[in-house]
Design a protein around this nucleic acid. Structure first.
Lengths: 183, 183
DNA sequence: GTCTATATTCTGATAGAC
DNA sequence: GTCTATCAGAATATAGAC
């Protein structure tokens, strides 16, 4: 798994091959079939691991009962940094990059669990409407996408996260003063 | 080109092969090299065509001098519908799905021209700050991504576009009354 | 411009010995 | 669990006849 992630990160998600994985760990490709049923099974394990990592990171990092707007900003920064940290992982988790790959029931469940986790944090901030949740995911995803596509390694969108959270909070009615003073 | 688009749409962008293209039009794959230098040259032509189509569609459809908020809504709907109409096209134009592909200078110029077009429409609405433009692209892209990934063919995010435009206009200071009355 | 033929390389996957 | 050997097929690309 480690090696698979390394290859996906450096050469692209679609460039992942069994031979490349096996070679790097000093094995032959058929031996991998003792551990995974197919290549897609590797993608699937990576998919599940990505979502599990995001969830555990969130649980370890965020603190409840802080000022709602501050908490949402932390949530946004956490997700943004996690996502932009690894393009291949983000593509696997959130975009349909690999034509044949579809997550298994387990993998899908992992992604739902992560989504539920995020939902509970938003609930703590008083956000419960389904449309408000959809708005949140779209805003965050959009920022991540632009950062990855148009300024990889930079902070052109990352530095507007505070503004984004303020705008969102105002829109959905999260109380509290603005986090940011000027444009 | 037509056939290449068809294959990319139905089987995925990465599933595009010279053989498949040639077969569908009653040719042999080597013959394609009389028209394109390489496979990536086909991707490149598709990339440029996608951006050119978006630009010409925008120029043909939008009207200047309407109410700023209305015009921005039209711009948003136009882009959203164009993008969600064809996942493969969107991936090619906006995401790094094909590991080896990088747009040529011409293709890149086409994308810049389309971006300039969008910028001029936003300028007409009084939006000029670079950060405000970045915010616009991120918001729109995020909506498109969520629609494609989580509700393909549906309208779960599409129907929140009015809300998005209102929120954006309020944030960046586009004058005029709200387009929408309730959540 | 299109064809046949072919080079070269890579792919995921299986059979079966150890 | 790991190996060798191999399958069956696919991929992009080139050479050269017509």
């Amino acid at each position: 798994m480690e090696t698979a992630w390394e290859i996906a990160r450096s050469d692209g998600l679609a460039a992942l091959t069994l031979r490349a994985v096996a070679e790097r760990i000093g094995m032959r490709s058929p031996s991998l079939y003792s551990h995974f049923d197919s290549k897609n099974a590797i993608y699937d394990a990576m998919f599940a691991e990505g979502w599990a990592d995001l969830r555990s990171l969130t649980d370890r990092t965020l603190r409840r009962a802080s000022v709602p707007r501050r908490m949402l900003l932390q949530l946004a920064e956490l997700f943004f940094d996690f996502a932009t940290d690894d393009l291949a992982r983000y593509q696997l988790m959130n975009q349909r990059t690999i034509p044949d790959f579809q997550p298994s029931e387990q993998g899908y469940a992992e992604s739902l669990a992560a989504y539920d986790g995020m939902r509970s944090w938003l609930r703590d901030a008083g956000v419960t409407h389904a449309t408000d949740l959809d708005l949140w995911t779209a805003l965050l995803g959009g920022f991540v996408d632009q950062q990855l596509a148009n300024d990889p390694g930079g902070d052109r969108w990352r530095r507007q996260l505070v503004r984004l959270v303020d705008m969102y909070c105002t829109e959905v009615g999260v109380p509290g003063p603005q986090l940011r003073r000027t444009r």
